[in-house]
Design a protein around this nucleic acid. Structure first.
Length: 488
RNA sequence: GCCCGCUUGGUGUAGAGGUUAUCAUGCAGGAUUGUCAUUCCUGCGACCCGGGUUCAAUUCCCGGAGUGGGCGCCA
């Protein structure tokens, strides 16, 4: 049963949500004079004024002489009140028979809603506004039944949701998720630009396997065999060799890996940077400052979206999430220390082994938030990663200037200082079993003066998971591409 | 790719070798109501596919497909 306090919370969230609307200019359009959010936000000034609104019909109540319609558009919700002697019996009947999620356009006058009947001791909610309809236009009628209910209390399987993402997106908490995704990208861009980075775009159709190690999707480029890009890595380095100084790219990467987990997709958006005259420590600094800025700005500006997600989480019995702004600098646990920590926990691991998920749990127990894992063995890192001769680990093996960023058990980032000496680069290629001649488009760029440089690639969806507490990466991607799904 | 689980109305679920297959949500119709998670009444709607065991399979067995979780691989 609902309790009154939860209704107060709803009311509060509703008003909070609309405060955020100040940020955008919602100019009138051919289909509406006002957004539904404006009806609530500016309701006091609009009382008595005629307005036209448009939206999805979330619900209608009342089969008699009056009818209440809950309308929703991209900005918020408002109630429309219909009375037979105002709008006419025919139109009243049309609306009363209308299916959920049909799109309707209402014209009417704004009025203050009658306050709900209060039980003893309850505080009245802030005033809310509605539209007393004088006319209605049915824009489109929705089929019934819906493949999934927008406001239904039953939970819905992820597969059903993704098959019908266009409807799933209409649910408030899903919409909030992708609003936050947009904000995260915006704040990330903002921060990098303040540090002098320029946004670039690199090709996603490439001629040769770029990094090795991962499987690429083959394709035909007219008559030439080609691949979908697994990473912008080599191209963003070429822009640094070209004197671009500091660059970033937010773009897709494709991996033909048969993985099937909560955190992998075969197409994902990678947030990449590359910067001249920096080493691995320098770009770790860029990253932690950027993430700090994102978290801080979300906490300051976007709490209403977090609240929307929490309202849903609570309805599902999940705990609420909070945006905890991470302190800078993030902890750094060098590979050698991580191995020791895992061994001390009683796990079988030797120097040179990869740190797998169960091992990450051990580290995450001590470092639950963001933490860097620098100084991996050179053998485990790609050919383009820089190493300093003589910088060796516990068993005397060469260390690299490559690092990871983890959030809890999950890897967010892979990065490092790059090798800028072409002779070493070609030697690295050969030692990885790759043919330097196939990489001449890349290595040639290093023959005419090359700045030392470093960079990283960050999985945007995984960052969203960390922010929103999602337990599946598919929650944070509009139309995820995994091993079993290519549509919609 | 490996291991484990699951598959029942549109959606999410309960359940049993044999009776009319449970509940919620939804949908349709009706009554009531300036409602606000409205309420009430009536009705509608389902056992993943193929094979096997059995008098009888939606239930048990085998296979397939789909799906969820864990792992590997990676970001």
């Amino acid at each position: 049963m609902p309790n009154e306090s939860s209704m107060d919370v709803q009311r509060f969230l509703f008003v909070r949500h609309h405060l955020g609307i100040h940020m955008a200019d919602w100019h009138p359009t051919s289909y509406r004079t006002h957004t539904l959010a404006e009806i609530q936000l500016k309701g006091a000034d609009l009382v008595g004024q005629e307005v036209t609104v448009a939206g999805f019909m979330e619900a209608n109540r009342g089969k008699g002489a009056i009818c209440f319609v809950d309308m929703r558009d991209g900005t918020g919700t408002s109630q429309v009140f219909l009375k037979g002697d105002i709008i006419g019996e025919e139109k009243l009947d049309t609306v009363q028979r209308m299916t959920r999620e049909s799109t309707l356009q209402f014209t009417g006058t704004v009025a203050q809603k009658r306050p709900p009947k209060l039980k003893e001791g309850e505080t009245p909610p802030p005033p809310a506004y509605e539209i007393v309809a004088s006319d209605v236009v049915v824009l489109t009628r929705a089929n019934a039944p819906l493949p999934l209910g927008i406001t239904d209390s039953v939970s819905i399987g992820l597969d059903t949701r993704l098959d019908n993402r266009f409807l799933d997106l209409r649910r408030a908490h899903v919409n909030a998720m992708f609003t936050l995704r947009s904000k995260v990208l915006q704040y990330g861009r903002e921060h990098l630009i303040t540090e002098g980075f320029k946004e670039i775009n690199t090709p996603k159709i490439i001629a040769s396997a770029s990094e090795g190690g991962t499987n690429l999707f083959p394709m035909m480029y007219f008559d030439t065999p080609a691949f979908l890009s697994q990473s912008p890595q080599l191209y963003k380095q070429l822009t640094i060799l070209g004197g671009m100084e500091r660059v970033f790219e937010i773009g897709p990467a494709f991996r033909a890996e048969n993985h099937d987990t909560y955190r992998h997709l075969n197409e994902f958006i990678s947030f990449d940077i590359e910067a001249a005259w920096m080493n691995d420590d320098d770009v770790m600094g860029v990253q932690e400052r950027m993430i700090h800025h994102i978290w801080k700005t979300v906490a300051e500006n976007d709490q209403e979206h977090i609240d929307t997600i929490n309202a849903y989480r609570e309805s599902q019995g999940d705990g609420s999430i909070t945006v905890e702004i991470p302190t800078v600098p993030f902890p750094r646990i060098e590979y050698c220390d991580a191995i020791k920590m895992i061994q001390d926990a009683g796990e079988e691991i030797t120097w040179g082994d990869d740190i797998d998920s169960s091992h990450c749990d051990i580290i995450a127990a001590k470092y639950p938030g963001f933490h860097f894992l620098p100084r991996w063995p050179m053998e485990m890192k790609p050919f383009y990663i820089h190493h300093i001769p003589g910088e060796v680990g516990a068993t005397g093996e060469q260390l690299s200037r490559g690092f990871d960023l983890n959030y809890g058990r999950d890897e967010m980032t892979s990065g490092g200082q790059r090798e800028h000496n072409v002779e070493i680069l070609e030697e690295n290629l050969r030692s990885k079993g790759l043919n330097p001649e196939e990489f001449s488009f890349y290595t040639d760029g290093f023959r005419f003066g090359a700045p030392p440089h470093a960079g990283w690639g960050l999985g945007v969806a995984r960052l969203l998971m960390a922010l929103t507490g999602s337990r599946n990466v598919r929650e944070t991607v509009l139309f995820p591409r995994d091993r079993h799904r290519v549509t919609p």
